[in-house]
Computed example of a mutant assay.
Amino acid sequence: MKKEDCFYLGKIVSKYSFKGELLAKLDTDEPDLYDNLDAVFLDLRGNLVPFFIETSQLHKSDLLRIKFEDVDNEADADALIKTELYLPLEMLPKLEGDKFYFHEVIGFKIKDLNFGEVGIIKGINDSTAQALFEVDRNGIEILIPMNDEFITKVDRANHTIEVNTPEGLIDLYLED
Rank of each mutant, 00 (worst) to 15 (best):
T160C: 00
I120F: 02
D5Q: 08
R156K: 15
L87I: 11
I161Q: 15
G123I: 11
V163G: 14
P31K: 10
E74W: 03
I53D: 02
L37M: 11
F102C: 07
T152E: 10
R65A: 09
E96T: 12
D176M: 06
S14E: 12
D176W: 01
I106R: 12
I110K: 07
D35F: 04
K122R: 14
D38N: 08
P93V: 05
K15Q: 09
T28F: 04
A131H: 08
N125W: 06
L95W: 13
E167S: 10
G20D: 06
F150M: 12
G107I: 06
F102K: 13
L113K: 03
D176T: 11
M1S: 15
M146D: 00
Q130V: 15
K153D: 01
L80G: 07
N47M: 04
N147W: 02
V105M: 13
F51D: 00
R45G: 15
E90M: 08
K25P: 01
I53K: 09
K2Q: 14
L58M: 06
I124V: 13
E21K: 14
Y16N: 14
L37C: 08
D5W: 00
F7Q: 01
A157H: 07
K25F: 11
I151L: 10
P145R: 05
L143D: 11
D29I: 04
S17G: 13
G116M: 01
D98N: 15
N158D: 11
L172A: 03
N47E: 13
F7D: 09
K2R: 15
G168V: 08
R137E: 04
I151P: 10
K122D: 14
K109I: 04
M146N: 01
G123A: 15
N147M: 12
V49L: 13
G97R: 14
N47R: 05
K94G: 10
K60T: 08
K122L: 06
E96H: 13
E74I: 12
F51N: 03
K153I: 00
F133Q: 09
T152N: 00
I161T: 06
K2T: 14
E30G: 01
P145C: 08
T152G: 00
A129T: 14
V135P: 00
G20K: 05
M1V: 14
D43M: 13
E4A: 02
N47T: 07
K111A: 12
I140Y: 03
T28C: 05
T83I: 03
K99C: 07
V49G: 03
L9Y: 02
L89K: 15
P93D: 13
T55G: 03
E21Y: 00
E117D: 07
